[in-house]
Amino acid sequence: MSPLLDVEGLHVRIPLEQGMLHPVRGIGFNVSRGETLCIVGESGCGKSLTSLSLMGLLPRRARITATRLRFAGTDLLGLNEDALSELRGNRMAMIFQEPMTSLNPAYSIGNQLEEIYLRHRKASRSEARERAIFLLEKVGITAAASRLSQYPHQLSGGLRQRIMIAMALMCGPELIIADEPTTALDVTVQAQILRLLKDLLRELDMGLILITHDLGVVARIADRVAVMYAGQIVESGSVIEIFERPRHPYMQALLRCVPIPGRTPPGASLGSIPGMVPALYEGTKGCAFRNRCDYAAEPCASDPVPVHANRGSTWRCILSEDESLIHTSKAARSAETAAS
């Protein structure tokens, strides 16, 4: 069965005074119905720009190209703005990172929920209201009917995020893109939102792309993971393979930054990655991670960096699988020794 979303060779370029910025560089992935793909990486790696390019919401100056960009058999690159507008919010929906800035403070919750349904379903106001109440109850909001007259500032962060999820579900989309939907929430509410997304995904047979930098969130909800660095996917595979057998030095370094329950003592020093994500202007060559990598060598500056594949995983590195896994084992032993 063909995937719901199929992306190959996606590039985003933005002309600036300093030159042509190239923040998304030839990435590819796919998502099937009922599946969760997590795109993980530091801030500035191109995750949000990738999601905006799928929805056709890039800045006017941005230029997008792709070898293949298909949603449910439709070529997204071939659609004009009217066709994209008909698709957005209807068959593809997005949950943005900060609901307080995504919800309009001048309109009630009911108006904002109903507007989507009225726009895409040509339904009556009463039908839209019934749909809004049903979905507010579905996402765990009590006294749903009374919430419709409230405004965003009258609600807590957890309630606002649940309303954003209900808004994304108003037209029964086939794909939801969630851009760090739990970043601004406390741990308890975060767990509730993740459980809700997982239950809705299974119940409604949707595809879900979850963008995050939180590896704990990835471990709880992902089926597959795409690790993004400097505009490229440097490693991808099943969530089990990525966490148990990380091949790319960047993913290995990210895991060293995470405390291990039961092993990392309180107050112990965690790993860190020196430096920062480079600015990616046109003409960048070689591995963008080489200036921060413990295993960088002269061939890392060459272009292109080889891509390996095994066990359904792919990774972009000069290291072979055996070499990368040796480094993983050494790092794990060092972490255990430090924690003992």
Score class of each variant (00 low, 15 high):
residue 125 R to G: 08
residue 79 L to Y: 13
residue 295 Y to K: 06
residue 102 S to Y: 10
residue 108 S to F: 12
residue 227 V to M: 00
residue 21 L to P: 07
residue 340 S to G: 13
residue 338 A to M: 08
residue 57 L to A: 04
residue 156 S to Q: 00
residue 190 Q to C: 09
residue 180 E to S: 05
residue 329 S to A: 13
residue 46 G to K: 04
residue 168 A to S: 05
residue 6 D to A: 11
residue 146 S to C: 12
residue 13 R to Y: 14
residue 255 L to Q: 11
residue 118 L to I: 08
residue 5 L to I: 09
residue 234 V to P: 04
residue 255 L to K: 05
residue 79 L to K: 14
residue 71 F to K: 01
residue 275 G to H: 02
residue 106 A to F: 14
residue 292 R to D: 12
residue 199 D to V: 09
residue 220 R to I: 11
residue 28 G to S: 11
residue 166 A to D: 06
residue 315 W to R: 06
residue 287 C to A: 08
residue 53 S to C: 07
residue 295 Y to Q: 10
residue 290 R to N: 11
residue 45 C to E: 02
residue 194 L to C: 10
residue 133 I to H: 05
residue 280 L to G: 08
residue 99 P to G: 14
residue 13 R to F: 13
residue 31 V to K: 00
residue 288 A to E: 14
residue 205 D to G: 11
residue 225 V to G: 05
residue 22 H to I: 09
residue 136 L to S: 03
residue 171 C to G: 11
residue 122 K to F: 11
residue 271 G to A: 07
residue 199 D to M: 07
residue 119 R to I: 15
residue 282 E to Q: 14
residue 287 C to P: 08
residue 135 L to Y: 12
residue 192 Q to C: 09
residue 98 E to I: 00
residue 280 L to Y: 10
residue 166 A to G: 04
residue 8 E to D: 15
residue 231 G to F: 01
residue 113 L to F: 11
residue 244 E to C: 06
residue 152 P to R: 06
residue 92 M to E: 10
residue 41 G to L: 01
residue 72 A to W: 01
residue 222 A to Y: 02
residue 195 R to G: 15
residue 59 P to H: 00
residue 299 P to R: 15
residue 263 R to C: 14
residue 331 A to T: 14
residue 21 L to G: 02
residue 126 S to K: 13
residue 234 V to R: 04
residue 48 S to D: 10
residue 5 L to C: 05
residue 280 L to P: 12
residue 96 F to L: 07
residue 186 D to A: 13
residue 330 K to Y: 15
residue 191 A to K: 08
residue 110 G to K: 07
residue 71 F to L: 08
residue 214 D to G: 01
residue 63 R to D: 03
residue 276 M to D: 12
residue 202 R to G: 02
residue 335 A to Q: 14
residue 233 I to A: 07
residue 233 I to P: 07
residue 220 R to T: 15
residue 6 D to F: 03
residue 67 T to L: 08
residue 223 D to L: 00
residue 217 V to N: 08
residue 138 K to R: 15
residue 107 Y to N: 13
residue 276 M to K: 14
residue 146 S to H: 14
residue 259 P to W: 14
residue 213 H to Q: 14
residue 65 T to A: 12
residue 236 S to H: 11
residue 130 E to S: 09
residue 66 A to L: 03
residue 332 A to I: 05
residue 107 Y to C: 10
residue 259 P to G: 09
residue 117 Y to E: 06
residue 315 W to L: 06
residue 142 T to C: 07
residue 131 R to I: 02
residue 13 R to L: 14
residue 170 M to Y: 05
residue 250 Y to V: 03
residue 231 G to S: 07
residue 26 G to W: 04
residue 294 D to F: 15
residue 78 G to T: 00
residue 95 I to W: 08
residue 280 L to V: 13
residue 39 I to R: 04
residue 201 L to H: 00
residue 83 A to Y: 13
residue 41 G to T: 00
residue 172 G to R: 03
residue 95 I to T: 05
residue 124 S to Y: 09
residue 239 V to G: 01
residue 55 M to E: 00
residue 305 V to G: 13
residue 45 C to L: 06
residue 326 I to F: 15
residue 75 D to F: 11
residue 298 E to Y: 09
residue 100 M to P: 01
residue 89 G to V: 09
residue 102 S to P: 10
residue 231 G to V: 04
residue 7 V to M: 03
residue 270 L to C: 01
residue 31 V to I: 08
residue 219 A to F: 04
residue 164 M to N: 02
residue 59 P to S: 02
residue 296 A to H: 04
residue 205 D to I: 06
residue 291 N to L: 13
residue 6 D to C: 09
residue 176 I to Y: 08
residue 324 S to H: 07
residue 172 G to I: 01
residue 232 Q to G: 02
residue 292 R to N: 12
residue 256 R to W: 03
